[in-house]
Amino acid sequence: MAASHSPSSLVSDPPAVAEAKQALRAHCLTHLKTRPEGADALLRERLAALILATPARAIACVWPLAHEIDLRPLCHQLSAAGRHVLLPDTPPRGQPLSFRLWTPQTPLLRGRFGTQVPDGPLETPDLILVPLLGFDRSGNRLGYGGGYYDRTLATLPGVRSVGYALAAQEVEQLPTGPYDQPLSCLVTERETLHFD
């Protein structure tokens, strides 16, 4: 029996697309892990300028894993500016993310996959910062393969999605599957690309 086409039950990519994405993940992850010193700070500055110029009140951010771009200083900056900073709570596979309110005083609990989850109330974001391994200039992103952000963006169609990555993580054209959700815009340490 085929899975229904609802955000909570998205099926995986066709085999050829899944294989092409997997091959690109290793390549893009190398660029992320070997980024130059100072790249995170430049990227955070560009993200802060973009976000603070919007009326978005509730911003879904990301508490980084060891190799990821560190958005923690941005979380503090947004909180100090009066924005609600939300961090993802990763559910079992196949479900969209939920987001919990974070403040500098909020205790963090251990989440799935080594993540940290705030011990705060659930809140719906106005803008979602989307981590990625690769991107192209059409607004497509290459994630880690779990489908969490695609499911989440499918359930929140009016919410602006802002990808962030190093310029070196760009690929000419990403393979896309039927459930991939394009980004609204993408910020690198060098430029901001708008897709909507």
Rank of each mutant, 00 (worst) to 15 (best):
N140A: 14
P157H: 03
P104K: 11
R100N: 08
R137A: 13
R110P: 05
Q116D: 07
G146E: 09
V159T: 15
L108G: 06
L109M: 14
E170C: 14
D126S: 08
L133S: 08
P118Y: 11
V171H: 00
Q169M: 11
F99W: 15
P107Y: 02
P96K: 11
A168Q: 15
V162F: 03
D126H: 15
E170K: 14
T124S: 15
T103E: 06
F135Q: 02
D119G: 01
L122P: 01
S138G: 11
G134D: 04
E170M: 12
L108F: 03
R160E: 12
L142A: 04
F113N: 10
V171A: 01
T155L: 14
T103H: 03
T115S: 14
S161F: 12
Q169G: 13
T155C: 15
G111D: 05
R112T: 03
V159P: 03
E123G: 00
V130P: 13
P125H: 07
L166P: 09
P121N: 07
L153H: 07
L142S: 08
D119H: 09
V117F: 02
P157F: 10
R151D: 04
G147L: 08
L129V: 12
Q116G: 01
L97D: 09
V130T: 15
E123Y: 01
P96A: 10
T115C: 09
A165H: 02
D136F: 00
R112N: 06
P121M: 06
G120N: 11
V130W: 07
T155M: 14
P96D: 12
G158L: 08
Q173E: 13
G139K: 07
N140Y: 05
D119N: 13
G143P: 12
G163W: 07
G163I: 06
L97A: 02
F113M: 15
Y148N: 09
V130E: 05
R151E: 05
A167L: 03
G158H: 13
Q169R: 03
F99K: 01
S138L: 14
G163L: 02
L122S: 09
T106A: 01
P107Q: 06
P157D: 12
R110Q: 15
D150K: 00
V171F: 00
L133T: 06
P157C: 06
L129Q: 04
G147C: 08
G146F: 09
Q116W: 11
G134Y: 01
V117I: 12
E123K: 11
L127Q: 10
V162A: 10
Q105F: 00
L133P: 13
R141H: 03
G158E: 12
P107W: 01
G146Q: 07
L101G: 01
F135C: 07
L156K: 06
L174M: 08
L109K: 13
